[in-house]
Design a protein around this nucleic acid. Structure first.
Length: 221
DNA sequence: GGCCAGGACACCA
DNA sequence: TGGTGTCATGGC
């Protein structure tokens, strides 16, 4: 597909999703640190489970870097139990807050002052933070334009006939970053809309214009 | 009871 | 470099 057509098609998908669902107001968190904790906890886990755990962490007054750093592994594992993979995720949460303390004295703002590529590399070097989680943190916690590729994105754009959906994470991400304006608000809304649509389709909830995607499929193929 | 959910890592060929 | 097993609860 020609570059201009690709750009127009991506914007058309965005417009249809936005017209259908409206603004999503993502990420559902009150602070950048809460975004990061949620991004780690939601790995391969339904968001409803994460919400319960976030509430528990707030109730226990441990949703801060020093509190997560100092709490015993066993207690943290108990608190995040409902998310699944609680032993693995305990290590991941601990690894992040330790990194934040060692390098920035718990100051996220300083960490986020880097440009996107440096920040992404640094996040990827932390245990438990892969490509999707790092992009989620950059976009939703640091408010910088880094497009998030997740299972929903691949599924939907694969259905739309994009071969890039089967490519590596970075190559698929380039489809969006090379065709869309580098706008954090746009990337934020686009990914949120994709996830919202994906969830509804996944739950087989009938959508009056679920057909918007079906129509696009016919146009693309 | 089976399947899947807003992944990442360790290990192996 | 790519494929596979593992981590695990909760909702439908």
């Amino acid at each position: 597909m020609a570059k201009a057509n690709q750009r127009n098609a991506l914007l058309q998908v965005y417009d249809l999703l936005f017209a259908e669902y409206g603004p999503q107001h993502w990420w559902p968190a009150k602070t950048p640190f809460e975004v990061i904790i949620g991004a780690i906890l939601t790995q391969s886990t339904a968001w409803t489970n994460v919400q319960k755990v976030i509430s528990k962490l707030i109730a226990a007054d441990v949703l801060t870097p020093p509190a997560i750093r100092n709490i015993l592994d066993k207690w943290l594992a108990d608190l995040i139990y409902s998310c699944g993979y609680y032993n693995v995720k305990t290590k991941k949460l601990k690894a992040f807050v330790q990194h934040l303390f060692d390098n920035y004295n718990d100051d996220l703002d300083t960490m986020f002052k880097q440009d996107i590529s440096d920040l992404r590399l640094e996040l990827l070097s932390i245990h438990g933070i892969g490509e999707e989680t790092s992009d989620s943190i950059i976009l939703y916690a640091a408010n910088k334009p880094s497009f998030v590729i997740d299972a929903y994105t691949r599924r939907i754009f694969s259905r739309l006939g994009y071969d890039e959906a089967n490519a590596s994470y970075v190559n698929f991400q380039a489809l969006f970053t090379s065709n869309l304006p580098q706008d954090a608000a746009l990337f934020n809304e686009y990914h949120a809309l994709i996830v919202n649509h994906g969830k509804l389709v996944c739950k087989k909830i009938p959508l009056c214009s679920n057909c918007c995607i079906e129509v696009l499929c016919k146009h693309q193929t």
